[in-house]
Amino acid sequence: MPSNEWLLITVGAILVNNVVLSRILGICPFLGVSKKLETALGMSGAVTFVLTISSFVTALLYKLLLSAEITICGTTVNLSFTKFLVFIVVIASLVQIIEILLRKFSPSLYRALGIYLPLITTNCAVLGAAELNAGANNGLGRGILESTVFGFATGLGFGLALLLFACLRERLELSMIPRPFRGTAIALVTAGILAMAFMGFGLLVK
């Protein structure tokens, strides 16, 4: 694989097709935990962690089992249509297992990410990354290593958007805002403007 292909995957996932601001995935944590920079940092760390691991596992499953033609009793079946069902079950249980293991082996990491992990079990950004991996190359799916890198870069993109938004919201707290716009209203308007700013990156990749 040529080296600029890797660059395309990473830059594409972080800036051009930012998971939050251009694909509109993972909006719930984007609005929910962006009130403080501190919690936003913890959340983006946890999302990146889960996205990387779940991208690897789902890509492995898709490549080896779901997209392959299986012959049973003389009939060939392709199970790729069950990918959503399988992915969501796999991701949810994966997060559960990671949580249990973290609590046992790394209490400090558990304390930093612990409260955010259960929130991510069914985060659509995680499912979205798995689906984007599976749907790439006309349904053939990305390679396993590429998928993992894509998952990691998607997590970084999510973190970038979340941290930028948290900084903006912390400043919004202190500014004088007309009464009808206070709270979620101004947050959504800001998110829209931030998304428009990210449209500028669209020209990076032809």
Partner: peptide, 15 residues
């Protein structure tokens, strides 16, 4: 019907 059966089996076994 094999496709359905296989899908149910695979998802069930994974679960």
């Amino acid at each position: 019907s094999t496709t359905f059966l296989a899908a149910v089996c695979v998802v069930g076994i994974i679960g």
